[in-house]
């Protein structure tokens, strides 16, 4: 979803703010966060592909589509949560969540999520 959001500003403000955004991102983000971000982009693309398939071709096993799409969205938000929690800039917001704890939470959430996804595939 972030991709669609960047589109309107890109048109209006030209490419220079986007470029500066990219530059600032490259400079200030640690490799660890970049890894997470690439996973996020992958999940987003996978979700978009499934959604297009549902709209353009068929939504026939609707529960299977929902399961697949929900696994993408769910994994996306869980990973995004992990990203927010391990981001050093947010340190004072998450006083009770250490990065290790964050990863454990992430793993637990993913397991529960995929348990339901598996059950829902049908």
């Amino acid at each position: 979803m972030p991709a669609t959001k960047t589109a309107p500003p890109a048109k209006k403000a030209g490419s220079s703010p986007l470029l500066s955004l990219w530059k600032a991102y490259n400079e200030t983000t640690s490799t660890r966060l970049k890894t997470i971000d690439s996973f996020l982009v992958f999940l987003m693309l996978s979700g978009i592909v499934q959604f297009l398939y549902c709209i353009l071709i068929t939504n026939f096993p609707f529960n299977a589509f929902l399961a697949g799409f929900a696994s993408c969205v769910g994994q996306f938000v869980l990973t995004a949560s992990l990203r927010a929690q391990v981001n050093p800039a947010n340190r004072n917001e998450f006083k009770e969540v250490s990065p290790e704890r964050a990863f454990a939470d992430f793993a637990l959430g993913s397991i529960v999520l995929h348990f339901f996804v598996y059950n829902f595939l049908g």
Binding site: S81, Q85, F94, E96, V97, D105, G109, V112
Partner: peptide
């Protein structure tokens, strides 16, 4: 706390 653990617990 901003913990995904409690978020998951809420969901369960």
């Amino acid at each position: 706390t901003g913990s995904a653990f409690f978020g998951t617990l809420t969901a369960l």
